[in-house]
């Protein structure tokens, strides 16, 4: 085995490794640019100390709402140690926009069995859009340690299909937790 053989084998392997990394990078480039798949990244600030007087995140405005154009927006406040509201109805096969913020510490937002996932950082509104393609219940745990009551911080997302999806006249929809 000459030094030249070693060098050549290394160059070949380096090329193979670079090719592998290139493919990985290409997949990410295509999925983000061509398919517009991005992580939730709207840099939108909000004063966490005055949330209760903020018109968007006032308690009466939280929850699921059908907008005039037919799209659906869910506004949630994550606070030690509960989500407001704790039961969230959403329609099946329609785009749903979640807007979440926190008045106190960092929380996490995850709808189990879906790709809806974001950090909830005080001072910012986390926003993400998703479509639920099948009806059913999803757990929605807080996924970042937020204090000693963190383990108890869960909500429920109910994906409802046509007949069950009944927003009221003002466009608001709500549900009750079982038990």
């Amino acid at each position: 085995m000459s030094e030249e053989t070693i060098r050549r084998s290394e160059l070949m392997w380096g090329a193979i490794a670079a090719f592998g990394v290139g493919i990985m990078a290409a997949v990410i480039v295509v999925s983000s640019f061509a398919m517009a798949i991005h992580p939730p990244s709207n840099v939108e600030t909000i004063d966490p100390t005055t949330l209760n007087t903020n018109s968007e995140f006032a308690e009466s405005n939280l929850g699921t709402r059908v907008n005039p154009d037919g799209s659906v927006t869910v506004r949630i406040v994550a606070t030690q140690f509960e989500f407001l509201p704790r039961c969230i109805p959403v329609p099946k096969d329609r785009q749903v926009t979640f807007r979440v913020t926190s008045p106190d510490v960092i929380h996490g937002f995850l709808i189990a069995g879906s790709n809806a996932n974001t950090m909830v950082v005080p001072g910012y509104v986390a926003q993400l859009r998703t479509v639920f393609s099948s009806a059913g219940d999803h757990l929605m745990p807080c996924h970042e340690f937020c204090g000693l009551g963190h383990s108890e911080m869960w909500a429920l997302v109910k994906v409802l299909d046509g007949a069950e999806w009944k927003p009221d006249a003002s466009g608001k929809a709500s549900c009750e937790l079982p038990r």
């Binding site: 990410i28 983000s32 991005h38 992580p39 990244s41 840099v43 939108e44 950090m119 950082v121 926003q127």
Partner: peptide, 17 residues
């Protein structure tokens, strides 16, 4: 910080690369 709301997509993408 991909899932963080305080950063935009640009630098998240750059650091992913």
């Amino acid at each position: 910080l991909f899932m963080d709301p305080e950063h935009g997509t640009g630098f998240k993408f750059l650091q992913a690369m």
